[in-house]
Write a protein that binds this DNA or RNA. Sequence first.
DNA 1: CTATCGTACTACGTCTGTCGGAGTAAATAT
DNA 2: ATATTTACTCCGACAGACGTAGTACGATAG
Lengths: 115, 115
Amino acid sequence: MAEISSDVIRGYNDIIILYLLLNDPSYGYEISKQIRTLSEDKYIIKETTLYSAFTRMEKNGFIESFVDQDLAGGKKRTYYRITPAGREYYRAKCEEWTLTKEVIEKFIAGEGRAV
Amino acid sequence: MAEISSDVIRGYNDIIILYLLLNDPSYGYEISKQIRTLSEDKYIIKETTLYSAFTRMEKNGFIESFVDQDLAGGKKRTYYRITPAGREYYRAKCEEWTLTKEVIEKFIAGEGRAV
DNA sequence: CTATCGTACTACGTCTGTCGGAGTAAATAT
DNA sequence: ATATTTACTCCGACAGACGTAGTACGATAG
């Protein structure tokens, strides 16, 4: 199967993550599994990519973190919640996607176009 | 109008350029104008991005350059021609695009999906 | 009872493509 | 005479993704 390269997905990790936070807060490990599942194993985000995206987006005010201390064994887990600014950013990025898709497809070998 | 950000287009400049070389050799300035025209001013590639893409792709064997010395005033112009490897690369990238598009759209607010 | 697997991260350094800014230089338009 | 267009080149900076490694605990398998 063709692989999705990092340069191709670059710029979309943010909205992929935000999408999974739209309804409920979530945390790294779960989001990573959801991306894998929802993409039908076509995209497996790297841990470092995911966690550095969290840091960046929190810095930008698109998400907020809170820690659940009460897990069994004293373990803790960091949850992220989307902010209104994050929601707005997500919306803007979705629009940008539509535009970008249209542009790129003008340069893609489509049906009936010789390559 | 929404702007196409560099992170979003990243990874696609190569195929945009190769697309414009599929039928005939061309050169930087012309390709840059074609991208602008074909995208209806939605995407204006930066000169540095374009020329560094040429260098990279020639190094990778996807394009070959040759110089036209016979322009008026002794000016020269560097043309690029797509190689068979470049054509193959283009085809592969187009397939990757299709896959990537499908994946990303699972995380995009579509019709009837609340955001 | 030991080892591996799954969970849930963090840290650090590297790589690559894109970008900003500047510069060159001839041809053409005003 | 001057500005704009054509056609590049060089350099350094930046940001996002990646590779590698490490931590630490619980559950399950052998």
